[in-house]
Design a protein around this nucleic acid. Structure first.
Lengths: 199, 199
DNA sequence: GCACGTCTGGGACACTTGACCAACTCTGGG
DNA sequence: CCCAGAGTTGGTCAAGTGTCCCAGACGTGC
């Protein structure tokens, strides 16, 4: 194995763990599966990381960061009106989920796992705070880009948006019904539009 | 141990497994933990059930059935208008979650677990079909009780409602923010009301 | 009364898991 | 040059896992 610092090795292990969790689920992310994915000997694991839970914390960080990048990537591009913008944004999110279902499922699994763990119990709250902040950021940017104003506090609307994306994702993961998911997004769009007024 | 048929024993094991899953999570629902909860010797397990996964299938059935009872229990009681009815129903659901967070989390965990398992992969689709049907039933009953009509197909609206309850539950489980959850419900109510017209 | 099929329950097996260690190798600063 | 400390690695441990087995107890039909 190439020589690398403990910090680098830890980061590499976190990336490998994410690959395993994505492909096989959290319950399959054993120390051995992770080092196999990272092509390291088992001994390296506890040299770079104090415990398995500690590494999973890193993985959550990784997932949350990745989620942010995807959400912000050029969504408000060329929408003609608020309804179009909302629909496109939600559809883009669904597309993001469809392109990597395992990763999105891993996100849920990690949240549930953390909630049950005494050492990781604080993570989910932080994780969702980040999601809500991210959604608020997108909504705030939309005001400027579309020449509109939200008639209710952006923080509240952000939470509702995350609620909808989570719910749509969960149902789609369960039944993989693309058409139904699109219809739900259309409906949600119709329901959200009245919260925007043109300035 | 009292004498009982294999079928009865299987049902008792399923109930015990649900208690364990509720309290400690799916990953803690080992054969030994389940038989300990049911106060049975370990040997009884594989006499009554061919495999652990097979029992988890029963548990999902149990949860889904219980969920249905809770959702239908006197929700449309005494609402003065559609908005009130929607808000009360969603709030009642949130209260249901708050009173038994472990069970609701267990529901999500079981869904995710089933999605990863090759033998249980068909369960989540069925599970969500039941949820959607249940929501549609409630919405249909609301039309009669409230003297309204939904302006869009009830099936589509049902999926949106499940989307919202799932999303609200997920966020609340993560941050336990009662006030924020209530605000989300208020907002969702406002967004849904336009889909109802009085007849 | 008695055999036969159902049920009981303690023990065992083969395997996986997270964690740890002691012995080795390499590298950079004095 | 050399040596202290950082990094590497295979082996090992105790605990826990799902599954299976079998000797016995029970209760029911003949």
């Amino acid at each position: 194995m190439a020589r690398m610092s403990a910090a680098e090795r830890r980061a590499a292990l976190a990336r490998a763990a994410l690959v395993v969790v994505d492909r096989d689920g959290v319950h399959a992310a054993t120390t051995r599966a992770i080092v196999a994915e990272a092509q390291m000997p088992l001994g390296s694991f506890h040299y770079a990381v104090p415990s398995r839970d500690e590494l999973l914390r890193d993985v959550v960080e990784l997932v949350v960061a990745g989620e942010g990048d995807a959400a912000l990537a050029g969504l408000l591009a060329d929408a003609v009106d608020p309804a179009d913008a909302i629909r496109r944004t939600l559809s883009a999110y669904l597309e993001h989920v469809r392109s990597a279902p395992g990763r999105e499922q891993a996100m849920f699994e990690l949240t549930q796992y953390a909630l049950r763990s005494s050492e990781l119990a604080d993570l989910p709250a932080e994780q969702y705070a980040r999601y809500h902040a991210l959604a608020a950021e997108v909504l705030g940017a939309a005001e400027a880009h579309l020449g509109i104003r939200w008639t209710i506090p952006v923080a509240d609307l952000a939470r509702l948006v995350v609620t909808i994306t989570d719910g749509v994702t969960l149902a789609w993961l369960a039944d993989r019904d693309d058409a139904a998911a699109e219809r739900t997004i259309d409906l949600a769009t119709t329901a959200l539009v009245p919260f925007a007024v043109t300035t």
